[in-house]
Write a protein that binds this DNA or RNA. Structure first.
Lengths: 265, 265
DNA sequence: GAGTGGTCTAGACCACTGT
DNA sequence: CAGTGGTCTAGACCACTCC
């Protein structure tokens, strides 16, 4: 076993058994190098492993700190139905049920919310998903939701609508109307679209540099979930499609499948 | 921008635009150091980034190679219902519908299959999930499924049954009966259990060292999915619980939620 | 044996954080 | 200012792969 592996294992153990409690600062790399009687780069290699595992957090100029295990936010598809039901409520009851809540699964009042809209031509992937011609103008909506407590974003969302369809209600083209009371499903209702079903497709990949920064993930190690959410209207057309980027260490998905009973049971 | 970042970006670009095609070997670190006019450790830092991103594969003594983008295996909950329906078919039609297929979502004939059974006491987590006393004897079943083509495993499964419940059919205690025709749901039927629903809970984390090896993931970078699958019988009790470890770069989950129609629509 | 990556050293200089 | 981590150098030695 290599020295750096042995050192990493030792520190990992100390974190696991509480010798190094969450929030505690590790000794400086020069001190650790003395303690373990190795060179500084070797210590750094060990510490990089722990960072990749999400166990420690490094802060330039301050030190390395044991990370508190992140509380996972549970995301279930029940809220799709919940949001759909709320669409029919009067306006004042719909307040606080914005796209934020639909796309993050959170219902907190204390969120910082950022939205910006663009018009972009459909690339091949979007064209396939919407069953439209490549180059068709799309309304691209970028959302970033941040808890007031933390600096890190909870999710990054890229949402797409066919521009000419959205334009049937000009209010939908104006980002300053966000967060929209009632969320995307209510927005769709204003242009005559009712959703039939929503498909979630979940993959994982390493975060891009800017995603890592915005989500408060140390660049190496922790992955992000990419949730591709496809909303299909009762007419069979894709009404909205969004990519939700979620931090891999703070997210949990849960889906329940109910099975048909055996006939002779 | 640091040198190693610039070098990584340059190589990333070459991989993206096909200058470095999948399978191609990168120049040796000493050659790259000459080309970019930096030291070898700096080159190594750049290459470690690419490895963490899953773009290259390093083989000790041979070189570094551009990884082919992995084909993702799509995993949907439809097969739970599919497997349940097949339980009632006659034996000869059930062949090839083993736990493997249920837990991996694959139906290939050409799989190498490994199973081993243990008896272990329930820890606190298992006790909570099964609603039993901690320390209750559990039948722990470890599955590892490997495609005949590749050396890497497709999934690693840890499955739990209450030992005394499984023991009602002694054949269920013998690992040499795996792969069982009809899979777990048929095994449960032999002890009088019909499933009502199955809940999938999905998280992601960095792989453990042995998981990375078995799944053919380079230790750093690519995450693993942990799918916790809870199968609940028609009596309301948890019948079986399994943890499925899936490679983050080769797995995609898809779940569709059908929404109720608006009454006045 | 020649070539490859894996580990490790002993430093240097810079950028960021606090006092 | 002192202390921290981030970057980078120029080498050494070992383990693995292939011929």
């Amino acid at each position: 076993m290599a020295k750096y592996e042995r050192i990493a294992a030792d520190l990992r153990q100390q974190i696991a058994d509480g010798t190094l409690a969450p929030g505690a600062r590790l000794n400086a790399e020069t001190e650790l190098a003395d303690e373990y009687d190795v060179s500084v780069p070797t210590i750094r290699q060990a510490l990089n492993m722990l960072r990749a595992e999400g166990l420690i957090d490094t802060q330039h100029g301050k030190g390395r700190f044991v990370r508190a295990p992140r509380q996972r936010v549970r995301r279930t598809p029940e809220r799709y139905q919940w949001e759909k039901a709320r669409v029919q409520l009067p306006d004042d009851e719909r307040v606080g049920t914005g796209a934020t809540e639909q796309d993050t699964g959170l219902t907190y009042q204390d969120l910082k919310f950022h939205a910006e809209y663009h018009t972009v031509p459909a690339d091949d992937q979007l064209a396939r998903d919407f069953d439209i011609e490549p180059g068709t103008q799309m309304l691209e909506r970028i959302y970033r939701t941040t808890s007031r407590d933390e600096s890190a974003a909870i999710s990054l969302v890229r949402s797409y609508l066919v521009h000419d369809v959205a334009a049937m209600n000009p209010a939908l083209l104006d980002a300053s109307n966000e967060p929209w009371p009632g969320g995307t499903q209510h927005q769709l209702k204003t242009i005559g679209i009712e959703l039939d079903h929503i498909t979630d497709e979940i993959t994982a990949r390493p975060p891009l540099a800017d995603e890592a920064e915005q989500l408060g993930i140390d660049a190496q190690g922790v992955a992000v979930f990419v949730l591709k959410k496809t909303s299909v209207g009762t007419n069979g057309n894709v009404a909205e499609l969004s990519y939700v980027i979620l931090p891999g260490d703070r997210t949990e998905f849960a889906y329940t499948t109910t099975l048909d009973r055996w006939e002779n049971a």
